[in-house]
């Protein structure tokens, strides 16, 4: 059973989430994303998660919500609904073995791509 189906929506994960902590938007909190999962919403918001597992630490039920978010990203990928940044990142990993693209020896990457 998916972890999110067991979520009681108590909200105790909110402040543990580094993304929520900065933005203060419920949709970006683990609970907010669980509510979207329950409605099977396919949106790039699922990339706004660092997969840090802090929500699991804070969760009274120790739910591993990051697993659900990761699985959902796979579905987004199937439906071609990933972010542009993510596409570039994956391309770079395939081509150059790193997410930054071609980086010259001793130089910093020109563009940083993160999921």
């Amino acid at each position: 059973m998916a972890e999110s189906t067991k979520c009681t929506e108590c909200g105790l994960c909110r402040t543990a989430c580094p993304v929520f902590d900065i933005m203060k938007v419920e949709t970006l909190s683990p609970r907010g994303k669980v509510m979207l999962l329950k409605e099977d919403v396919k949106d790039e918001i699922f990339y706004a998660c660092t997969l840090c597992k802090n929500c699991t630490v804070a969760c009274p039920l120790k739910l591993e919500l990051d697993k659900d978010f990761k699985n959902h990203r796979a579905k987004l990928e199937e439906d071609n609904k990933t972010t542009d940044a993510y596409k570039v990142l994956i391309d770079n990993v395939r081509k150059y073995g790193n997410p930054f693209g071609k980086v010259e020896e001793g130089k910093l990457p020109k563009e940083l791509f993160c999921c």
Binding site: E9, G11, V25, T27, M35, L36, E39, I45
Partner: peptide
Amino acid sequence: IDKISYSSD
């Protein structure tokens, strides 16, 4: 997406 996540407590 915001309307959904704010639809409850």
